[in-house]
């Protein structure tokens, strides 16, 4: 069993912002658990990786059981795992819908549910979900991705009410485009157009996302729940 070190779970931790957050939480003294469908090509003391698909109920439960057995607690969850597909809706196959909603919606729900079951034992928990500015900007070509993130925002707001009495807060951060694999296939002119529509006209950075997450997970933020904060001045 763990001492008083915070236990943090980050989904989609193999690369990109998930990896950045995992390394950051470890540096700050937390015990970090992460998951992804494929194994990472890196390792870190204080970090444990689980091969798990967040959309698979049995795999999510097994991961939580492992965390409960080894640490007896879970303080923070960052639901970072997500997939995107940019395409005109008339050209979007239904398999894209299944893939996007399985990971983004089903996965986020399953991780929230199983994490909250563990968190409620100690009447403390911080859950941060990942949304996107594609929701408020209603970006063309991102219908399914944005719809899945809209679902995550609604989940966030309702779970905040259901889990509030158990001492668990649930919030979401909506990043602007960041240089990650998620936007690799998006034409540069489209990214530039999005950037020009922001109040602060630049691409996002991992640190921008981490800054909002830091605020949500602070112990002092126990009166902040059901909120979605967009980066870059989008509202």
């Amino acid at each position: 069993m763990t001492s008083d070190r915070q236990v943090v779970l980050i989904t989609g931790a193999r690369k990109g912002i998930g990896r950045f957050l995992a390394e950051r939480f470890v540096r700050n003294g937390a015990l970090v658990e992460g998951c992804s469908r494929k194994p990472p090509d890196w390792s870190l003391e204080g970090y444990t990786h689980h091969l798990a698909d967040v959309a698979d109920e049995a795999q999510v439960r097994a991961m939580m059981t492992s965390i409960a057995r080894r640490h007896g607690r879970l303080d923070i969850v960052i639901n970072n795992a997500g997939v995107a597909a940019m395409n005109h809706s008339l050209l979007t196959p239904v398999t894209s819908l299944d893939r996007i909603f399985d990971t983004n919606v089903r996965g986020t729900f399953l991780v929230c549910r199983e994490a909250a079951r563990l968190m409620q034992r100690r009447r403390f928990g911080r859950i941060v979900n990942l949304s996107t500015i594609a929701v408020p900007l209603r970006l063309e070509g991102e219908a399914l991705y944005a719809a899945s993130k809209s679902a995550i925002e609604t989940l966030t707001r309702i779970l905040a009410r259901e889990l509030g009495p158990l001492g668990i807060t649930v919030n979401a951060v909506g990043p602007t485009p960041i240089e990650t694999d998620l936007i690799r296939g998006v034409p540069p002119e489209k990214i530039q157009k999005i950037v020009e529509s922001l109040a602060i006209r630049r691409l996002g950075r991992f640190e921008d996302v981490a800054n909002v997450i830091d605020f949500f997970v602070r112990p002092e933020s126990d009166y902040v729940t059901g909120q979605v904060i967009y980066l870059g001045g989008v509202s």
């Binding site: 439960r61 079951r117 409620q120 009495p165 158990l166």
Partner: peptide, 22 residues
């Protein structure tokens, strides 16, 4: 109602620990 939810969650965990059944 929240108390009943908490009871059910707690029992599911205890049953898994005691009997190895989820």
């Amino acid at each position: 109602s929240l108390g009943l939810v908490t009871l059910i969650v707690d029992l599911e965990q205890k049953i898994e620990e005691a009997f190895g059944v989820a």
